[in-house]
């Protein structure tokens, strides 16, 4: 009886490992019918933001605590339209690639849905976010999920996260030591600082452009004096 009581007390006093979510966000590709005439043409390959997120998931899984989970959020409409343009089922391809990396996509269609998915209270159903990484189009003020997909050279208002929208992301959804990275272009020039001020966690972003053309994790474009900042 004593042994049983002591074991129970020991179990109760042991800190329970909190489960956390690691969020990977994949923005959408541009349409070739808009981009092919430009000198600096974007997204010749449709899957830049998919492949980099899948590769990053593989990397993270090697160091992932058993309680934590990778949540992969994918902006659906752009892949649908690019697929229609090129007569390919990109959802099937990206789901297969995710399956090989042990992740499955959760689709979102606009920024409001993204904000809902990022709203966490630390419960078992909605664990807090310990890491957030973004792969997609951006400028210094904005994440543009549908850049050059429905509007030539721009993005529609419901489909971008502007710095003015950041107050809709609560800092309470993140753990106190959460790490955030934006792999979009120019995020380190203003978006990161606004994120730190409003959301309350530092976000590493690029000063200058990022390059996805070699596949894998994007890197800073060479020759522009770019750097990472937070």
């Amino acid at each position: 009886m004593r042994i049983w009581l002591s074991l129970t007390l020991l179990a109760l006093t042991q800190p329970i490992a909190q489960a956390h979510d690691i969020i990977l966000i994949s923005g959408g590709p541009a349409l070739r019918s808009f981009e092919k005439y430009r000198t600096a043409s974007h997204d010749k390959y449709w899957g830049n933001f998919i492949d980099s997120a899948v590769l990053r998931a593989k990397e993270l899984q090697t160091t992932l605590p058993p309680t934590d989970k990778i949540v992969w959020l994918v902006f659906r409409p752009s892949y649908q339209r690019r697929g229609q343009e090129e007569k390919e089922d990109y959802f099937k391809i990206l789901e297969e690639r995710g399956f090989k990396a042990g992740i499955s996509p959760i689709y979102f269609d606009n920024k409001d849905q993204l904000f809902t998915l990022l709203r966490r209270d630390g419960s078992k159903e909605k664990p807090k976010i310990s890491r957030l990484e973004y792969f997609g189009h951006s400028n210094k003020k904005c994440w543009m999920f549908d850049y050059s997909n429905r509007v030539d050279g721009g993005a529609l208002e419901p489909l971008v996260v502007h710095v003015d929208d950041l107050d809709q992301i609560s800092g309470k959804s993140f753990t106190s030591d959460a790490e955030c990275i934006s792999y979009g272009c120019h995020s380190g020039e203003e978006f990161s600082q606004r994120w730190r001020m409003i959301v309350g966690r530092p976000m590493v972003g690029a000063v200058g452009k990022t390059d996805y053309s070699d596949g894998g994790i994007p890197k800073l474009s060479t020759g522009k004096g770019g750097t990472w900042a937070y």
């Binding site: 003020k141 710095v163 380190g188 020039e189 203003e190 990161s192 600082q193 606004r194 001020m197 530092p202 590493v204 000063v207 750097t227 990472w228 900042a229 937070y230």
Partner: peptide, 16 residues
């Protein structure tokens, strides 16, 4: 796109 109070604080550069 004018400079604002957040941008004026400047970024913390990460040394490569």
């Amino acid at each position: 796109s004018r400079p604002n109070r957040f941008a004026e604080r400047g970024a913390n550069m990460l040394k490569p």
